[in-house]
Simulated assay, not measured.
Amino acid sequence: MSDHKEWKRVASVQDISADTGTLRVLVDGEAVCIYDVDGAICATQDKCPHGNASLAEGYLEDGKIECPLHQGVFDIRSGRPLCPPVTTPIQTYEVKVEDGAVLIRPQP
Score class of each variant (00 low, 15 high):
11 A>N: 08
11 A>Y: 07
11 A>L: 08
11 A>V: 11
11 A>S: 15
11 A>I: 10
12 S>Q: 14
13 V>C: 02
13 V>D: 03
13 V>Q: 04
14 Q>V: 13
17 S>V: 12
17 S>K: 10
17 S>D: 13
17 S>T: 10
18 A>I: 11
18 A>Y: 00
18 A>E: 13
19 D>I: 14
19 D>M: 05
19 D>Y: 02
21 G>M: 07
22 T>I: 03
22 T>S: 07
23 L>D: 08
24 R>N: 00
24 R>E: 08
24 R>W: 01
25 V>A: 06
26 L>N: 05
26 L>F: 03
26 L>T: 13
27 V>H: 05
28 D>Y: 04
31 A>V: 00
32 V>I: 11
32 V>T: 06
33 C>K: 01
33 C>N: 10
33 C>I: 05
34 I>W: 04
35 Y>S: 03
36 D>Q: 01
37 V>D: 15
39 G>K: 06
39 G>W: 07
40 A>G: 00
41 I>R: 03
41 I>V: 15
42 C>D: 00
43 A>G: 02
43 A>W: 00
43 A>H: 01
43 A>Q: 00
44 T>F: 04
45 Q>T: 12
47 K>R: 15
47 K>T: 15
49 P>K: 07
50 H>R: 10
50 H>I: 11
51 G>E: 15
51 G>K: 09
52 N>A: 14
52 N>P: 04
53 A>C: 13
54 S>N: 14
55 L>V: 10
55 L>A: 09
55 L>P: 03
57 E>M: 12
57 E>G: 12
58 G>N: 08
59 Y>W: 15
61 E>F: 07
61 E>L: 02
62 D>R: 14
62 D>F: 07
62 D>W: 05
63 G>H: 06
63 G>V: 03
66 E>K: 13
67 C>I: 10
68 P>L: 12
69 L>E: 08
73 V>W: 04
74 F>R: 06
76 I>H: 02
76 I>C: 08
77 R>W: 07
77 R>H: 13
78 S>T: 15
78 S>Q: 10
81 P>L: 12
81 P>F: 11
83 C>G: 09
85 P>S: 06
86 V>K: 05
88 T>C: 13
89 P>E: 12
89 P>W: 09
89 P>K: 14
90 I>S: 01
91 Q>W: 00
92 T>P: 03
92 T>M: 02
92 T>F: 02
93 Y>N: 02
93 Y>L: 06
95 V>M: 06
96 K>C: 12
96 K>I: 12
96 K>H: 08
96 K>M: 14
97 V>K: 08
97 V>F: 09
97 V>G: 03
97 V>D: 10
98 E>T: 13
98 E>H: 05
98 E>D: 14
99 D>S: 15
99 D>W: 00
101 A>S: 13
101 A>W: 13
101 A>L: 07
102 V>W: 00
103 L>C: 11
106 P>N: 04
106 P>Y: 02
108 P>S: 13
